[in-house]
């Protein structure tokens, strides 16, 4: 199972990175979203996989009687999901506003902070 998921995670990363290398902010955003999933899945996989036994202690017991899924990566990933969603929403709105202000979705056209052909700083004193 880990082998299959490692492969899937690799594909997730590759697709996410391919999308993020685009010049179109919408594709970059899609890439960011997939990238988040890829990261979460890899954390989850790195904590080893157990099928179908959630980390929940039965009502009658004090500690789990059988080996459950590893709870730690789940806790990490849970918050990561929510935070990556927050980031995604932020980037989405940022991209939207940038599109409204600059009239383009091409990152080559978004050169307000680093304008093209900036003049050389003065050589005098």
């Amino acid at each position: 199972m880990e082998v299959a998921l490692s492969f899937v995670v690799g594909v997730f990363f590759a697709v996410a990175i391919y999308l993020m290398l685009s010049k179109h902010i919408i594709r970059i955003l899609l890439g960011v979203s997939i990238f988040g999933n890829a990261v979460n899945l890899s954390i989850f996989t790195a904590g080893r996989l157990t099928r179908e036994v959630p980390p929940i202690i039965p009502e009658a017991l004090q500690t789990p009687e059988v080996a459950t899924a590893n709870p730690l990566p789940q806790a990490l990933v849970l918050t990561a999901i929510v935070i990556s969603f927050s980031l995604f929403a932020f980037l989405l709105v940022l991209a939207f506003r940038a599109y409204q202000e600059l009239g383009t979705d091409d990152t080559d056209g978004m050169r307000v902070a680093e304008p093209e052909g900036e003049p050389m700083p003065p050589l005098g004193y």
């Binding site: 082998v3 998921l5 995670v9 594909v11 990363f13 990175i17 996989t45 500690t63």
Partner: peptide, 30 residues
């Protein structure tokens, strides 16, 4: 670039899952 990166990350993950796993911390929580 994307393919190499994805492959590298996948390989790293595969390698990670092939080393012995220390369950001390997870056991503590359980």
């Amino acid at each position: 670039v994307a393919g190499t990166c994805g492959a590298a990350l996948g390989l790293m993950l595969l390698r990670v899952t092939q080393v012995p796993f220390n369950t001390e911390l997870s056991d503590f929580f359980s």
